[in-house]
Every structure is written in C-alpha cells, then in structure tokens.
C-alpha cells in the first residue's frame, strides 16, 4: 500500500515537471514579447534590452526555465521586485508576485467549487440512482429528460436568468457576492447559493446520466445477478453490489471535475462577478500578463495531477484488486 502511494506520488511529480516544461515552452512561443508591451510607443533597441534584462528574459530559455523552477522552491529576486518562495513568476502588470494573487483569489474559487460540488453530487448522483432503480418508470423518464435539458444548458444563459428572476424579479436574494466564511458563514452561504445552483446545473445533467448508465451496466454484471440469485434483498443488491461497482467511475469523474473547478470556474465567476481564479485568468489573458497566465496554468495543472493521485489512492481503498497489485 505504501509502495503504491510512493510510486503514484513519484509519477505525479514527473507529470508535473513535464507539464511545467511544456507550459513554459508555450509561454515563450506566444508571439507577444512582454518587454515590447511595457516598452511603450517610442521603443528603442537599448530600452528593450534593459527591460528584457529586468524581466530576466535575456537569458537562454532553458536557463530561464531552470530559474523559474528553482524559484518555485527557493524564491527569486527580480530587478523589479522580490518574489519569495513559492515563486510562480512576477506579474509586471500588477507589480507583484503571482503566488499571492492566486492565494488571494483562491478562497472564492474553493468556496464555489466545494458548494457547487456538494449540490451536483447530491442532486445529480441521487437523481441518477433513483432513475436507475426505477428504470423505465415515469420518474426515470422525467429524470432522463431533465438531465438532458440541464446538460445542454449554458451557465452564461442560465446565470443571468436566475439573477433576473431571483434577485431582480422576486427579490428573494441579494446580488451574489463573496463573503469570507470565517467572517460570516451565513452570509457566505446565502451569497453563493445562486452561483452554486447555476454551476451545479450543468454538472447535474452529466452526473445523472453517468450514474444511471453506470448502475444499469452494473445490474447486468454477473456478480450483481449472483447476489440476487443468493436471495439478497433488492436494496442490499443495489447498494452493496451495483453501487459499489459504479462508485469508482463516479469518483474518477468527480476528481477530474473538482480539480478543474479549483483551477477556476471561469464562466461562473465571470457571470456573477466573483473575484476568483477564473476571473483572474480572464483578466490576465486580456492584459497579456504572461507570468500570471503561466502561474495559473501551472497551479491548475498541479491541482489536477494531485487530485488524480488522490483518486488513485481512493481506488486502493475501494478496489482490493488495485490494493494488492
């Protein structure tokens, strides 16, 4: 078990290094020179050279990458400012290191991701389970149609409608806003309720469909039939056998979705003007703030890799076949 986890962690590290190298490479493949952007209209060759030196972009790319990687662990010093570890680069637009910006925005994104996930897991998986258990019945048809509808929804369409009805029409809610959980838990909850619901909607559709089809697939499995043939009760067969088999796939999908949500729910944040990582990435892209984009990309990639490793560790708990290999 320990060996499995160590092996998995090492694998994750290799993937992260690869991702960072590729991201860094792409960063410099962009046909925009960050030095040109800050150089202004009357740019001379010598001025450009000075800016390049300040940005650290006058070195060969492999050296730059090396400095970048070392900076993550040891911190860096730019002529324009200090960047303590973990240094994910220095945003020249914001005149501040990228890491504090990310951590500053993270609580909004985490709140959005956790709340939204709770909603879509409970509603989506629950609806899928009901649909599978009552396959072919009215409730199954309603759930399937509903999930199809929700699956084809768009947040930028649903969000404004929810705002128009719930906030401006019926005045049931205030305009969604982020209040730190530590300051006012109730305010945090109420302020994010509409974004959670809207964000969850598209996932609910996907999770309902996935859960339903996974369970129905499991019902056809011989060991599930065998459990029935042993005389076990319908709920027992459903939860202990069929559900158990469907669980690992649902966890896999959830791990992927959750980690990508942590990287920033761009459209949701933008729709509800929440200042999370997603909104930050849009702003950074808008301003061609390459160090910030690089930092967010690497951070998001790291999250996905870490969550994947965590999912694999979960498998080891769920599935004895993985545990022993």
């Amino acid at each position: 078990m320990l060996r499995f986890l160590i092996r998995r962690a090492l694998g994750a590290l290799v993937v992260l290094i690869l991702i960072s190298a590729i991201t860094y490479g792409l960063f410099w493949a962009v046909p925009r020179d960050p030095a040109m952007l800050s150089c202004g209209r009357d740019c001379t060759a010598s001025a450009l050279k000075i800016i390049h030196h300040n940005l650290g972009t006058d070195e060969p790319i492999y050296l730059q990458y090396w400095h970048y990687m070392v900076g993550i662990f040891a911190g860096r010093h730019f002529p324009v400012g200090n960047c303590p570890a973990p240094c994910l680069g220095y945003s020249f637009d914001e005149s501040t290191p990228v890491w504090p910006i990310i951590t500053g925005r993270l609580p909004v994104t985490i709140s959005l991701a956790i709340g939204g996930s709770v909603v879509f897991l409970i509603v989506g998986v629950g609806l899928g389970m009901i649909a599978a258990a009552r396959r072919g019945k009215l409730i199954d048809k309603v759930a399937t149609t509903l999930s199809m509808f929700m699956y084809s929804m768009q947040i930028y369409f649903l969000g404004p409608i929810a705002l128009a009805i719930l906030v401006y029409g019926l005045h049931l809610f205030n305009n969604p806003a982020y209040v730190p959980f530590t300051e006012n838990p109730w305010g945090w909850f109420v302020g994010l309720l509409i974004p959670w619901a809207v964000l969850a909607t598209i996932f609910v559709g996907a999770y309902t469909r996935m859960t339903r089809s996974l369970l129905i697939e499991q019902f056809q499995e011989e060991h599930v039939k065998m459990a029935r043939a042993k005389g076990m009760s319908t709920p027992f067969v459903f939860f202990r056998y069929a559900w158990r088999g469907a669980l690992s796939m649902i966890i896999t999908q959830f791990g992927m979705d959750f980690s990508s949500l942590l990287g920033g729910a761009i459209i949701t944040e933008y729709t509800f003007s929440l200042q999370g990582l997603g909104a930050f990435s849009v702003e950074a892209t808008d301003k061609s703030d390459l160090p910030s984009i690089m930092g967010i990309m690497l951070f998001g990639a790291a999250l996905i890799v870490i969550f994947n490793a965590a999912i694999d560790a979960c498998y080891a708990v769920i599935d004895p076949r993985v545990r022993l290999n």
Partner: peptide, 10 residues
C-alpha cells in the same frame, strides 16, 4: 457460467 465475473471483486 463465468466464475471470473460471478463473484464481486469488492
């Protein structure tokens, strides 16, 4: 029929 699939792996 198939003992490979008629026991739950879990």
């Amino acid at each position: 029929q198939d003992p490979m699939t008629s026991l739950s792996p879990y």
